[in-house]
């Protein structure tokens, strides 16, 4: 299978092991504090899962990393988020470049009501004027990366909305890969899918992590246990603990983590 060039090839000569660094991140919606003093780093080319009960701030944290929270009125953010060493809230940050670098897959598949072709090339067309041949190459590469090329290569002009939910979600992932991000944020990407489709998306994530840093928010603890290298447990806006997935699920340090993963609440 064709794969994208490793993200780290394009970065500085010797990239730091951690691609994302958060320092004392606090986030408020009006007077409500949604994130409290988050201090954490995310390593390159690994899958980090964020788990925790509804409303614990895990989606908020995810949406901070590509500044999608900026769209919400009355949001206030304190602290630092460094991606590749650059503060994403700094004055010289170009928002569109940040979002190109930090791609996002949403909870429900949200392909545009356009053709499969137009969905995949949407991003590349935003960021330049690629020629037809170049677009064709991006198209094939992105759809191959999500293992869809064979299925759809003969009907690229049909509406993306005619695909199954799983195919739609794969298409959304392909659409993100087409702009060659370094980081993939996945916000419960399987919550609209059946168990088999979920498993196949998880397999896809394992393929993708060779080239991308993946951060996934999930409600599904089995999913976190199966699919991630690192897991972080969040509760009431705080990141309680983060560590290797094996440790978090077998030897949690904090009693709240233990209570959550053993099903006492959540």
């Amino acid at each position: 299978m064709t794969i994208f060039p490793a993200a780290s090839d394009k970065g500085p000569p010797a990239p730091a092991p951690d691609i994302i660094v958060l320092r004392r991140l606090n986030l408020f919606y009006g007077t409500f504090q949604a994130l409290q003093d988050i201090d954490v780093t995310f390593p390159r080319q690994a899958i980090t899962a964020l788990i925790g009960p509804s409303g614990c701030g895990k989606s908020t944290l995810l949406r901070t990393l590509n500044r999608m929270n900026d769209l919400i009125e009355g949001v206030r953010i304190e602290g630092e988020v460094l991606i590749d060493g650059q503060d994403i809230f700094g004055p010289d940050v170009v928002l569109t470049d940040l979002r190109k670098k930090v791609g996002m897959v949403f909870q429900r598949p949200n392909p545009f009501p356009l053709s499969i072709y137009d969905n995949v090339v949407y991003g590349p067309r935003l960021h330049g004027q690629p020629g037809k041949a170049e677009l064709q190459e991006i198209l094939e590469r992105s759809l191959t990366a999500v293992e869809m090329w064979g299925e759809v290569k003969d009907r690229l002009k049909t509406s993306a909305l005619s695909l199954t939910e799983e195919q739609q979600q794969r298409l959304c992932i392909a659409r993100v890969l087409a702009v060659e991000p370094e980081i993939l944020l996945m916000d419960e990407p399987c919550s609209a899918l059946d168990p088999l489709a979920t498993l196949r998306i998880e397999e896809l994530m394992q393929e993708l992590k060779r080239n991308y840093t993946i951060i996934i928010v999930t409600h599904n603890m089995q999913q976190a246990a199966r699919a991630s290298d690192l897991s972080g447990f969040m509760y009431l806006g705080e990141l309680i603990e983060i560590g290797s997935t094996g440790d978090i699920f077998t030897r949690p340090k904090d009693s709240r983590t233990e209570d959550y993963i053993t099903g006492k609440y959540g």
């Binding site: 590509n66 999608m68 949200n110 009501p113 959304c172």
Partner: peptide, 12 residues
């Protein structure tokens, strides 16, 4: 979600 999808891809 259409708007979010587009903005998240780096669209203005």
């Amino acid at each position: 979600p259409y708007r979010d999808g587009s903005l998240a891809l780096g669209a203005t």
